[in-house]
């Protein structure tokens, strides 16, 4: 109960919000963006927050999922669920092949290598126009049906993406609190000590790289169907950086921190729209301020303060 408490609360909020505001733009449209980003941030956090391995190319796997679904369903009429599986197979293979050589690297070198991976895959989306439609993207991607229930309204997409997010959080919480999850945290804490307790560090790092790629790929597939259109700019280097920012902003090594970072970074631009030209400037200033004053992340710092308050209250 304590382990999944946060998940239950989030699920409750998700359902209540969907039922109470079924017509709100902020709930259905922004909600889907938030959920997509949350899935990506939670999956990246498994790699970055828990295992301590940075990736500046996470958007690439989101893109591989999206393009697999987009191409197979719009061009070849493949069933969307089969297309999603094909996307998973592709993302899984690419991540598995790249994992060992890339994750041998550390620090700045790892950052550079993942950055390179993201850029190369992005360039492929742009250049291979015979397949991907090039910079103009691909349109005419059909919708999906879940057990005969056509997902054809913003509200229905809200439910679909919300469920995917809750599933990802559940998986993340499960992994963190398990033998492989502790092995990952051990790699983060001290790689040499992890090895001396028998952890095959290269293998466990590769595994989590694949898991995080697979989760991103599913999000990408659904994203393609929801948008009915994909183009390379959704999967660029800038988006990868934004995902890293979400994870860091919420607080590393906290699943709900990643969710929180995703919510914040998805909402912030909406609220800053009133500032028009200064939007980006204020956005940047807010991010800088948070990182300077709360280097452990907003969510992690706040929840620690609350816990300390509660503890203090008990003591007195």
């Amino acid at each position: 109960m304590r382990r999944l408490g946060g998940l239950y609360i989030l699920a409750f909020l998700f359902v209540i919000t969907g039922l109470m505001f079924p017509d709100s733009y902020y709930v259905t449209v922004v909600g889907v963006t938030i959920f997509t980003n949350a899935v990506l941030a939670v999956s990246l956090n498994l790699l970055m927050g828990y295992a301590g391995q940075i990736s500046l190319g996470h958007a690439a796997f989101f893109g591989l999922g999206a393009y697999s679904s987009a191409i197979l369903t719009s061009r070849y009429g493949v069933n969307p669920w089969l297309a999603m599986l094909a996307g998973l197979a592709l993302s899984g293979t690419v991540s598995w092949v790249l994992a060992r050589p890339i994750l041998k690297l550390k620090g700045h070198y790892l950052a550079m290598a993942t950055l390179g991976m993201g850029i190369i895959i992005h360039i492929f989306f742009v250049q291979a126009d015979w397949l991907t439609g090039g910079p103009d993207g691909l349109s005419g991607i059909p919708g999906i049906t879940v057990f005969g229930w056509p997902v054809n309204t913003d509200l229905r997409w809200y439910w679909v993406f919300g469920v995917l997010m809750l599933f990802c959080i559940w998986v993340s919480l499960n992994i963190v609190d398990s033998r492989p999850g502790r092995a990952l945290a051990a790699v983060h804490g001290s790689e040499v000590a992890a090895q001396m307790t028998g952890v095959d560090t290269a293998s466990v790092k590769a595994q989590i790289f694949v898991v995080s790629a697979l989760l991103a790929s599913v999000a990408g597939s659904l994203f393609a169907h929801q948008q009915a259109f994909v183009s390379p700019e959704s999967f660029s280097f800038f988006f990868s950086i934004e995902l890293v920012t979400m994870v860091v902003l919420g607080g590393l090594a906290s699943t709900f921190g990643a969710v929180f970072g995703a919510v914040l970074l998805s909402l912030l631009p909406e609220f800053l729209l009133v500032f028009e030209d200064f939007e980006v400037l204020i956005y940047g200033a807010i991010l800088m301020a948070i990182m300077i004053f709360l280097p452990d992340g907003l969510f992690v710092t706040t929840s620690r303060l609350i816990t300390e308050r509660l503890r203090g209250g008990e003591a007195s």
Partner: peptide
């Protein structure tokens, strides 16, 4: 010292049990 400072005391020792357990990803 190479303690896993990002974990509790118990979790540190649970990592020590890695080879005596099987659970995969």
């Amino acid at each position: 010292l190479q303690v896993f400072l990002n974990m509790t005391v118990l979790e540190n020792v649970m990592v020590g049990c890695h080879l005596r357990s099987r659970c995969g990803m």
